[in-house]
Design a protein around this nucleic acid. Structure first.
Length: 243
DNA sequence: ACATTAATTATGT
DNA sequence: ACATAATTAATGT
């Protein structure tokens, strides 16, 4: 979480630095030799903002670790509407359909910013789980948290009003992908009103109105594809959370 | 309490 | 200059 890498992007892909996986949960209990072995099996790719890493329904031939950037997980509803399921910050695994018993990807993954991923063939998942101690528990821990998040999101959709839903969405964003700036927390990647409406099941207009209202009250500050939460506490109150 | 439509303005490349 | 994003008001369910 403190890692602010910018300096050394791997310009050559021959060998990957072992420090890349240091402190990343699924690998944090492994010794350097094991990490070396895992890295040698990985392939690194760069994804431009907006490009898809994999698509819903396709064969889940690889699973991924996000090294840098942000990934948006998106699903299309029956009537063709995009729904943003969740955002993934760097350092997390994704596309692990195998772990959930699927052989195709259940959703589409799109790079929200320029991103760098490592990926492995899906068939290696079982051997990772088998031979690396703690790999399974630590990955399922993050997966479990994610599923929990999706579930509470569904409950929110059904029960809460839009104002509270948008507030909740903002809170999640600043929790997972927030960056501290002076006098607030800024969402660390470009996010439009449309995006937020797709996360909360409303329209961009309603989001726009809410944001304008909150901005007048000094809770948030926003520009084109940028949102800064100036007063997180107020947003918590608006979200109707049980403290 | 919210969506939809439409018109207008701002912003980034 | 052009496309994309944001705002705002009016109207509809």
């Amino acid at each position: 979480m403190i890692v602010m890498q910018k300096a050394n992007r791997p310009s050559t892909y021959s060998t990957l630095d072992e420090s890349l996986l240091n402190g990343i949960p699924p690998f944090s209990m492994l010794d350097p030799k094991q990490i070396r072995a895992i890295l040698d099996l990985a392939s690194s790719r760069r994804h431009a903002a907006g490009a898809s890493v994999f698509e819903e329904g396709h064969d889940a031939d690889r699973f991924y670790l996000l090294l840098d950037g942000y990934i948006r997980v998106v699903r299309i509803t029956a009537d063709g509407e995009q729904v943003i399921v969740l955002h993934i910050p760097s350092g997390q695994l994704f596309g692990i359909a195998k772990a959930l018993g699927h052989d195709t990807y259940p959703a589409t993954a799109i790079a929200a910013t320029d991103s760098i991923t490592l990926s492995w063939p899906t068939r290696l998942w079982d051997s990772f789980v088998a031979q690396y101690d703690g790999f399974a528990t630590q990955s399922y821990q993050t997966v479990g948290a994610r599923i929990g998040e999706m579930n509470t999101r569904i409950v929110e959709m059904a029960t809460q009003q839009v104002e509270q839903r948008i507030a909740c969405a903002l809170l999640r964003l600043i929790n997972q992908t927030g960056r501290k700036v002076d006098g607030g927390i800024e969402i660390d990647f470009p996010i439009s009103r449309q995006d937020i409406s797709e996360m909360t099941g409303t329209t961009l207009h309603t989001v726009s109105r809410m944001m304008s209202a909150w901005e007048k009250q000094g809770f948030v500050e926003s520009g084109r594809k940028r949102i800064t939460v100036r007063d997180p506490h107020q947003i918590v109150i608006l979200s109707g959370a049980k403290v």
